[in-house]
Computed example of a mutant assay.
Amino acid sequence: MDDALVAYGAGHADGKAGAHDGAKAVDPATGADYLVGIVDGQVAAFEEALVAAVRRALDRKSDGPGV
């Protein structure tokens, strides 16, 4: 179980960073956990970018008159 969590954590970090380690992905024992971590990391990075974009859009909108 610990190996699976470590592989998931590594995948999550790699996914957020936009990286991918092919050797970890094909490991028969932990490759699936690593790949799930990659996807979750990519989703987390997307969510952060989306929230930042919405905040920027709202900041620009609030600079207008009467808002």
Rank of each mutant, 00 (worst) to 15 (best):
Asp40Gln: 07
Val43Trp: 05
Ala44Ile: 07
Gly11Gln: 04
Ala53Trp: 07
Gly18Cys: 03
Glu47Thr: 14
Asp33Val: 01
Ile38Cys: 03
Gly66Gln: 06
Asp14Cys: 01
Ala52Lys: 12
Asp59Gly: 06
Tyr8Asp: 06
Asp27Gly: 00
Glu48Trp: 02
Val26Ala: 15
Leu50Ile: 07
Ile38Phe: 07
Val51Gly: 08
His12Ser: 11
Ala7Trp: 01
Gly9Met: 07
Gly31Asp: 04
Val36Ala: 13
Val39Leu: 13
Val6Thr: 13
Ala49His: 13
Asp27Thr: 01
Arg56Phe: 10
Lys16Tyr: 02
Gly15Thr: 01
Asp3Gln: 14
Ala7Phe: 01
Thr30Arg: 05
Asp40Leu: 02
Ala53Glu: 12
Val67Pro: 00
Gly37Lys: 02
Val54Asn: 10
Ala4Pro: 04
Asp3Glu: 14
Lys24Trp: 00
Ala10Ile: 11
Arg55His: 09
Arg60Trp: 01
Ala25Thr: 07
Val67Thr: 07
Asp14Gln: 00
Asp3Trp: 09
Arg60Phe: 05
Val26Ser: 14
Gly22Ser: 11
Ala19Asp: 08
Asp21Tyr: 03
Asp59Gln: 07
Asp59Val: 09
Ile38Thr: 03
Arg55Ser: 08
Asp59Asn: 10
Arg55Met: 15
Ala13Lys: 14
Lys24Ser: 01
Gly18Glu: 02
Arg60Tyr: 04
Ala23His: 11
Leu5Ser: 15
Lys61Gly: 04
Gly41Arg: 02
Gly37Leu: 08
Asp14Val: 01
Thr30Trp: 01
Val51Tyr: 12
Tyr8Val: 02
Gly18Lys: 06
Lys24Asn: 05
Lys24Cys: 08
Ala4Cys: 09
Gly15Asp: 00
His20Met: 14
His12Ala: 11
His12Val: 11
Ala4Gln: 12
Glu47Ala: 13
Ala53Ile: 05
Val67Asn: 07
Ala13His: 07
Gly31Phe: 04
Phe46Gln: 15
Val54Gly: 10
Glu47Phe: 10
Val36His: 12
Ala29Leu: 13
Val54Leu: 14
Val39Asn: 11
Ala4Phe: 09
Val43Ile: 12
Asp14Trp: 00
Val6Asp: 05
Val54Pro: 07
Lys24Gln: 07
Gly41Met: 06
Lys61Gln: 12
Asp63Gln: 11
Tyr8Ser: 08
Leu50Asp: 15
Gly22Pro: 08
His12Ile: 09
Arg60Glu: 09
Leu50Asn: 13
